[in-house]
Design a protein around this nucleic acid. Sequence first.
DNA 1: CGTCCCCTTGATGAGGGTCAATGGGCGTGG
DNA 2: CCACGCCCATTGACCCTCATCAAGGGGACG
Lengths: 251, 251
Amino acid sequence: MTPPTVKLSTLKTACKNCKLHQLCLPLGLENNDMEELDKIIKRAKPYQKGEYLFQHGDNFDALYAVRSGSVKTYSQDDNGDEQITGFYLAGEIMGLDAVHQGSHPCSAIALETTSICKIPFDHLENLSTQLPSLQHQLLRIMSKEITEDQALLILLGQKSAEERVAAYLVNMSDRMEKRGFSPLEFNLSMSRKDIGNYLGLTIETISRTFSHLQQIGLINPQRKHIEIVDSVELRRLAGLPKIACGMRSTA
Amino acid sequence: MTPPTVKLSTLKTACKNCKLHQLCLPLGLENNDMEELDKIIKRAKPYQKGEYLFQHGDNFDALYAVRSGSVKTYSQDDNGDEQITGFYLAGEIMGLDAVHQGSHPCSAIALETTSICKIPFDHLENLSTQLPSLQHQLLRIMSKEITEDQALLILLGQKSAEERVAAYLVNMSDRMEKRGFSPLEFNLSMSRKDIGNYLGLTIETISRTFSHLQQIGLINPQRKHIEIVDSVELRRLAGLPKIACGMRSTA
DNA sequence: CGTCCCCTTGATGAGGGTCAATGGGCGTGG
DNA sequence: CCACGCCCATTGACCCTCATCAAGGGGACG
């Protein structure tokens, strides 16, 4: 099932009333600090599927936190080759890579109807000097982004197609669970093509690998809907014996 | 030529007298702010080739800035697969990925005799709340790390062996130039094996690609010593028409 | 001078890319 | 409500790049 549609009333919820605040920037903030953060956050109308949040080269002025829905980000080089660098779910923050250049090095597109909290970066920086716990959390989130990119590097540099797909599914499963959804049955908002690009594989390989994982009884894919049949074995295949270890997780 | 050996006297140079400060953390700091930063930095004796700066799982308490020499960092997963995530030259900063977990997710090994500035992270965080320009620079450096990892993702996800190697050489060339060395003639401190691992290729493929690039008159590799014969064409092959664009650069 | 390690080069094969055809939802319009 | 068309996904056949296996060269260092 897709994440439940969010009523417009809840779209404007303040951070301290937002059920995501344990997954998001406010993590670790006192209540009154959270109110300060809340004051600078802008909540606009939802983006439709396929709509750009920002594009490569756009001036950077704010971070984007997913409130509901999902987003893909991709960078492209001068040849036009595109690489999806991340899928972002509720509570996750985009735009951290833009701080350095002052402009966005990648583009972000909504994968479904998606609502967003925009956090003006200059205000956030100012506030961070006054709230050490906010500065700390901001640094932690950037650090996590690095860790996740590096986990993806291992995947692309060292792993077979099957290992990559298994790791991807395990990662999505863990992230679904963190958001209160079933870890064993969920919908992927991204296409096979997107998954393939993200994992450095072609759409055909993704499709074949899904089929094979189904044949050996690990998953049961029905188009976008994924049922994980044998979570233990899937994790073993992914090379992640225990719980999540890298890629985009949360907290 | 390897970067010139640094006399011990210069090892203890304060930030404001360090010729690297335009490439390093102090970038953008006023002179007296730089002195504040300087007070918290620790400069230990050089690491020998092959020596660990820190290892996967070590408690995180400081960032590591390269003063001279070079370092490789690599992460490993539960299967023991290793992926080199970066090569760090003078002025570049390691350990940013450890902020999130509070322990190092990767290991760092000196590729040659290397001197380091250790920056205790709790002190740095405290100082950052007092010096907005330091906080800003810290965020910029973390952001740059993300951008560079994402450039490597494009390389691993989308590019052929030849394109990867060409991009790697162009990147090294640009970084050498930023440090005042010749961009057309320099020494690689890392082995072919390390380059291969970094680029998601085998040592044999690296060797063959070097040979081929030599045959078509783009480079002239003599073991560790690389001469770039046709920089323009090499950049074109790398898909980087103009100047540097991604991977680890500096500033 | 010998040994070790790193690098180079060649031969072979597999994993996954490419090309092509078919199937199945879903949205749109009649 | 149904029909059409489009897009996404699946599956098969073939091929290419790069990994693997193997052998040999050449510095560096004792």
